[in-house]
């Protein structure tokens, strides 16, 4: 039962509950580690996700070693991405009084789900710029 807040931290569970202030349904993706067809949601602003039912060991592949799997493990961050093993869209319920004074969108995923804390695109741009500069200096 640990709270994870660092970029890149990932949880996986059979049932995952949580909330977010803003979310987007991004469509179907093939998950690069689990190699399954999954629906991607992107949550932005004050997001929270918690494992309420652990997943089966048979659902895990090579590459899932770093994923947190215990019931109660949770992610708390501004932006998280969620892959859900379903081809249909889940409903998000709007409720007040969860995220400070703002309304929140509550989700209860009842299919295998993988949630990660996202890294801002700006950080990737910064790293690529730095790598390109280092390469030029070396030459």
């Amino acid at each position: 039962m640990t709270k994870y807040v660092s970029p890149g931290d990932t949880i996986i569970g059979e049932h995952i509950d949580g909330y977010t202030r803003r979310w987007m349904w991004k469509g179907l993706r093939r998950h690069p580690v689990l190699n399954r067809q999954m629906t991607l949601y992107e949550c932005d602003l004050n997001s929270y996700a918690e494992i309420v039912k652990a997943c089966d060991e048979s659902d895990l592949n090579d590459g899932c070693e770093a994923y947190k799997k215990a019931v109660g493990d949770c992610l708390e961050a501004d932006a998280i991405s969620i892959y859900v093993d379903s081809k249909r869209k889940y409903q998000f319920k709007v409720e007040a009084g969860i995220s400070g004074r703002h309304k929140s969108n509550i989700f209860n995923f009842r299919d295998l789900s993988v949630c990660s804390i996202k890294i801002p695109l700006h950080n990737l741009k910064k790293v690529i710029k730095k790598l390109n500069q280092t390469k030029q200096i070396e030459q």
Partner: peptide, 15 residues
């Protein structure tokens, strides 16, 4: 607007 968008667009592995 995000790494997820970039990886979805160009089929990159977000990890």
């Amino acid at each position: 607007n995000s790494i997820t968008d970039l990886s979805s667009l160009f089929s990159f592995n977000p990890n």
